[in-house]
Amino acid sequence: MKDDLIKAARKIVTDPYILVNVVSRRVKQLRHGSKPLVESLEKLNLEDVALREIIEGKISYELSPGENTY
């Protein structure tokens, strides 16, 4: 994963545990055939695609009621 993408995504999803979960769930979706929601001229790995999607506001997350945060 690219450090600059991680830093930019951390500005949007400030809790690192939630960021890891959002990225890992999106990577799983991409591996199972979901189309990327961002275009890139460079070849990105799936984790970087997920980070770019977060940065560009293409995906978001929602905590379930009563779900604990760290």
Rank of each mutant, 00 (worst) to 15 (best):
M1W: 00
M1C: 05
M1R: 05
M1I: 09
D3R: 00
D3Y: 01
D4K: 00
D4I: 00
D4C: 00
L5R: 06
L5G: 01
L5A: 01
I6A: 04
I6N: 05
I6Q: 07
K7P: 00
A9K: 00
A9T: 02
R10P: 00
I12T: 02
I12P: 07
V13L: 09
V13F: 08
T14F: 06
D15A: 06
D15P: 04
Y17A: 13
I18P: 09
L19D: 11
L19I: 12
V20Q: 09
N21H: 02
N21K: 09
V22Y: 08
V22P: 06
V23C: 10
V23M: 11
S24V: 07
S24D: 15
R25M: 06
R26L: 05
R26S: 02
V27W: 06
V27R: 05
K28P: 02
K28G: 06
K28L: 08
K28S: 14
Q29V: 01
L30C: 12
L30D: 14
R31H: 04
R31K: 14
R31Q: 12
H32N: 05
H32D: 03
H32F: 13
S34F: 13
K35G: 00
K35L: 04
K35Y: 02
P36W: 07
P36F: 08
L37G: 00
V38K: 01
V38T: 06
E39A: 08
S40Y: 08
S40C: 15
S40D: 15
L41K: 15
E42C: 01
K43P: 01
K43L: 06
L44I: 12
L44E: 13
N45G: 07
N45V: 07
N45M: 09
N45Y: 06
E47G: 15
E47T: 15
D48W: 12
D48R: 10
D48H: 12
A50M: 11
A50F: 08
L51H: 07
L51P: 12
R52T: 13
E53G: 06
E53K: 01
E53P: 03
I54G: 05
I54F: 05
I55P: 06
E56S: 02
E56Q: 10
E56N: 07
G57D: 11
G57E: 09
K58M: 10
I59N: 13
I59V: 15
I59Y: 14
I59A: 10
I59M: 10
S60W: 03
S60K: 07
S60R: 04
Y61N: 05
E62N: 07
E62H: 01
E62M: 02
E62S: 10
E62K: 09
E62T: 08
E62C: 03
L63G: 06
S64L: 14
S64I: 12
S64E: 15
P65N: 06
G66S: 10
E67G: 01
E67H: 05
E67D: 03
N68H: 07
Y70E: 09
Y70A: 02
Y70V: 09
Y70N: 02
